[in-house]
Design a protein around this nucleic acid. Sequence first.
DNA 1: CCGCGTAACGAGAATGATTGTCAAAAGCGC
DNA 2: GCGCTTTTGACAATCATTCTCGTTACGCGG
Lengths: 132, 132
Amino acid sequence: MSESGAAVRNTRQRSAVSALLAEVEGFHSAQDLHAMLRDRGERVGLTTVYRTLQGLADAGEIDVMRPPGGEHLYRRCSEGHHHHLVCRACGRTVEVAGPTVETWADRVAAQHGYTDVSHTLEIFGTCPTCTP
Amino acid sequence: MSESGAAVRNTRQRSAVSALLAEVEGFHSAQDLHAMLRDRGERVGLTTVYRTLQGLADAGEIDVMRPPGGEHLYRRCSEGHHHHLVCRACGRTVEVAGPTVETWADRVAAQHGYTDVSHTLEIFGTCPTCTP
DNA sequence: CCGCGTAACGAGAATGATTGTCAAAAGCGC
DNA sequence: GCGCTTTTGACAATCATTCTCGTTACGCGG
C-alpha cells in the first residue's frame, strides 16, 4: 500500500524520456519533447510525457521554468542548486550559481519568521550574438 | 495615428479596477478581481479586466506573479523595484528589497555579455502563523 | 453645447496547454 | 509462468487567457 513495495517501476517510456533529456540541450516544452520522441520512433503518449516530467521534477532531477510565454519548460541540469541566465531572443541559457542570493533569501525569510524556504530566480537578457 | 492624440482614455471601468487594486491587499487573480467588481455592483467585463491589468502591468503600476498554481496574480505594489516573500499556505506577502541581488544579477549578466537585463525573483516559505 | 472619430468595452467563441478518466498492457516478486 | 499492481495512453474535460467584432462612450474641435 504505502511501503515495502516497488513504488517506482522501470519502464521503457520512462527511460526514453530520461535518455532524451540527457541528450538535448536547453529548455524544451513537454509537447516539444513528445514530438522529439515520436520522431525518434519511440511510441510514448503525451500524457505519459507530462507524468514523467512531473515525476522527475519532483525528484529534483530536472528543472522547470515558467517563462512569460505561458508553457512550462523542462531541462536536465547540473546537480546543485543554481539559476539561469536566458537570452530572450535566441533562448541560449547559461547556468549561474549565486551563493550570495541563496544566503540572502534564507536570511530575509528567517527575519520574517518564514520557514521551509525556497525561491525561484531567472535572469533575462539579450546575449552578445543577438545584440544588434 | 500614432501621435498627438489621446492615446489613453479615462473610463469608468479603468478607474474601478485601479480603485479596487488600491484597496485590496495581497495578490489576486484576474478572475478574482472581476468577481469582486461584480460584487461591488460595478459592471465590468472580464475581458476588460484582463486588458486593464495588462496595461497597468506594462506601465509598471502593478506587479505580476506566476505561482506554480498556474494563474497570474496581480497586485498594486510600492513604486520601486522589489521582490516578494510569499507564504505558501495562507498567501501572506511581504515586500522585500534586495539591492545585493540586483547588483549581482546585473554583474553576472554583464560578465556573459548579456545586455538589457531584467530578472524575476520570488521567495516562498511558510509563515509563522501557518507553522504547525 | 453638439457631433464625430476613435479608442475602449463586452459577450461569446476560440485557443491551447495541462489534467482527469478508465480500460488495457506490462513489470516485478514469488 | 502467474497474478497483483502500477503504468500507460487515447480521448474528453477543464480552465485561464486571448480573439473577434459589433456597440458604446470619451474627448476634442467646431
